[in-house]
Every structure is written in C-alpha cells, then in structure tokens.
C-alpha cells in the first residue's frame, strides 16, 4: 500500500498540475459588481449564525447569549426590533442549549467580539480591546463607546459595566498600556 508521505507528495503534484488559471479580467468583473455602499446583511445578527460561527460548546453559547441579553437590557434600557429578535432567539437557544458542557472565559470573550460588531451595527463608535487583554486582569478594558453626554460606557474583562468620564477612561487606558510595557 502507498505510504502517507508518497500520497501527499503525489497530491502536491496533482495540485501543481491541476486546474486552469483564472480567466483574465475576472477580478475586474467582480470588482465592478461590488456595490459601493455596504448594506449589512440582517442575517449577520441572527443569533443562530453567531453560534454557528463561534462553534462553541452548548453551554458556552448559552452563556454568550445571556451575557448579550443582559448587556442589551442593561446598557440601552430600551428595545429595538433587532434587540427583540436576539432576545427571542436567545430564549429559544437557551431552552435548547442548557444541557452539559462547561463554558469558559475565552468563549465569553469571543462572544464579546460579536457584541462589539453588534454595537457597530447600531452605529456606535466602539473600541474593542479583546484581542490584546489579559483576561485575568479584572480591570482591563474590553470595550468602550461614547455616550450622548460625552462620557463613556466601559465594559471590563470581568464583564462589569461602568460609565466613566473621559479623564477616567484615559487613566484606565494608560494603566493598561503601562501594564503591557512592563
């Protein structure tokens, strides 16, 4: 029987010798068809898509939904139709998901990056720090965005939410920078 190595080597040759090059001008055709204005697809906020994309364990997925719902309720104190959809999706998924497996901080953080996208979708000017923070540092900034009164809403890595003044925000950012450079 053929060894794995030999088979992989043959597959490489097949790759190098398979398929014709893309027709010239195809890229220009595609570029012409891309609309100038980006209209976000509503499905991008479908919670089921979020779960599929995250590919997290069931309970972790449920945790992400709960966090999102709590944040939506707590942060905005209002409910738009999109929030309502997520709320309904969340209820269905929690019923479906709450059986087994453990959630982890990293899963919740991954969910937070989705929440960040959601805020952008709502037109907020958001800064997300999630890719660079130390999850063990409870005072590390995870997200912030500007409020109408000039202050900032901040979410920390332990998921607590606070409204801070611009000066306080600068201090929090400076603290993170100092910690990183140490």
């Amino acid at each position: 029987m053929m060894t794995d190595e030999k088979l992989k080597e043959l597959l490489n040759t097949v790759t190098d010798t398979t398929g014709d090059p893309a027709p010239s001008g195809l890229n220009e055709d595609i570029k012409r068809q891309i609309p100038q204005t980006l209209v976000l697809h509503r499905g991008g906020w479908d919670t089921i898509n979020i779960i599929i994309d995250l590919r997290v364990s069931k309970l972790a997925a449920a945790a992400v939904i709960i966090v999102t719902m709590v944040l939506l309720a707590g942060v905005f104190g209002e409910r738009s139709s999109a929030d309502g959809d997520i709320y309904q999706d969340g209820k269905l998924l929690i019923n479906y998901c709450l059986k087994g497996e453990g959630a982890s901080t990293s899963n919740v953080l991954a969910g937070m990056s989705r929440f960040y996208e959601y805020l952008i979708y709502r037109g907020k000017e958001v800064t997300y720090y999630g890719d660079n923070i130390d999850p063990a540092d409870k005072d590390a900034l995870l997200l912030h965005w500007k409020l109408a009164d000039g202050n900032y809403r901040v979410i920390f890595s332990d998921l607590r939410i606070e409204a801070v003044t611009p000066e306080q925000l600068i201090k929090l950012q400076a603290r993170m920078l100092q910690k990183k450079t140490r």
Binding site: I30, P35, E117
Partner: peptide, 25 residues
Amino acid sequence: SRQVSEDLTQESFLQAWRHIAQLRD
C-alpha cells in the same frame, strides 16, 4: 466547470461583502 467556477467565484465575493460583519479578524 470553467463557467460555473467563474460565476461561483463572483458570487462568493459578493456574499463576502454582504456578510462582512461576520469577519472576526
């Protein structure tokens, strides 16, 4: 086939643009 591959390549990029919000990083 060649023709279908061209069409599907175009379709993929249009879909990607429409679903750009799903791109994480």
